[in-house]
Amino acid sequence: MSNCLETKFNDILFKNPVIPASGTFGFGREYEAFYDLNKLGGLCSKGLTLEPKSGNRGIRLWETPAGLMNSIGLENPGVDAFIKNEWPHLKDIDTVTIINVGGKDEESYLTAIKKLNAIDAKLIELNISCPNVKAGGMAYGIKAATAGEITKKVVAISRHPVMVKLSPNGEAIADIAKACEEAGAQGISLINTLQGMAIDYKKKAVVFDNLYAGLSGPAVKPIALRMTHQVCQAVRIPVMAMGGISNWEDALEFIMAGATCIQVGTMNFNNPLAPIEMIEGLEAYCQKEGLANISEIRGII
């Protein structure tokens, strides 16, 4: 196999730039029935918080045309249980493991990050963009000033490089990205879900107990692509892009817009093999176009 897809994200080497996105891939185990996880460029964990979280009540999923709304509310076992029960398994997978971390306030973010210093992960994805939790989450991510502040504090105590995951629901996204870069972030990932709403006219009621929910899937792709382009133009740190990427052609477009790596979320539900098919598609594209490495077409737009 050629290494035309090998990608460096700062000094972290990815076999390929394709990574299942946080919250759509559990901690990996479930997808082992479909393919060898070692083939993935990386793997991003479900969003972890300091304490275990039971998530939101009521309906959590609602399909829309070409999209999916979710209101999971960061259900997760908490950092300690993750380190004890999931990490021993995750760490043996030969891929770049990314740990997604959420929080309700500054202290909970920092304590979670400190605890994660104990493990040898490759990259932290700082989730300041979850629209489905009442406290914290997106509150930090929608303003450049607060995004910068929390990033600075996290970077100062994290043993791991920190990539900040941005929300599409706030101030101009390039400004937020710049604030995170100035605060010391080693990378940016985007986009988290777009805040939306669903009403069930038959029940004359809102669908989600939490009122609003996060939209993802092919429906959001043009917005995600535009935001990726804007952020890539604005910062020098590498960018990991996502939002509606459903095949290798989509992945390529995000890379052309400047993304170093791409993440695959909702499409894992449509086709569990989607990430693998994207890797194969990108590889075939490089061969057909005579590219020694995918980086040759990165950021050409």
Binding site: F25, E30, K46, R57, R60, L61, L68, I72
Partner: peptide, 16 residues
């Protein structure tokens, strides 16, 4: 329950 993955990965089909 409404389901997305069907295999335990998305936490969308929770039952209390």
């Amino acid at each position: 329950a409404h389901m997305a993955c069907g295999i335990g990965a998305c936490l969308g089909c929770t039952c209390e």
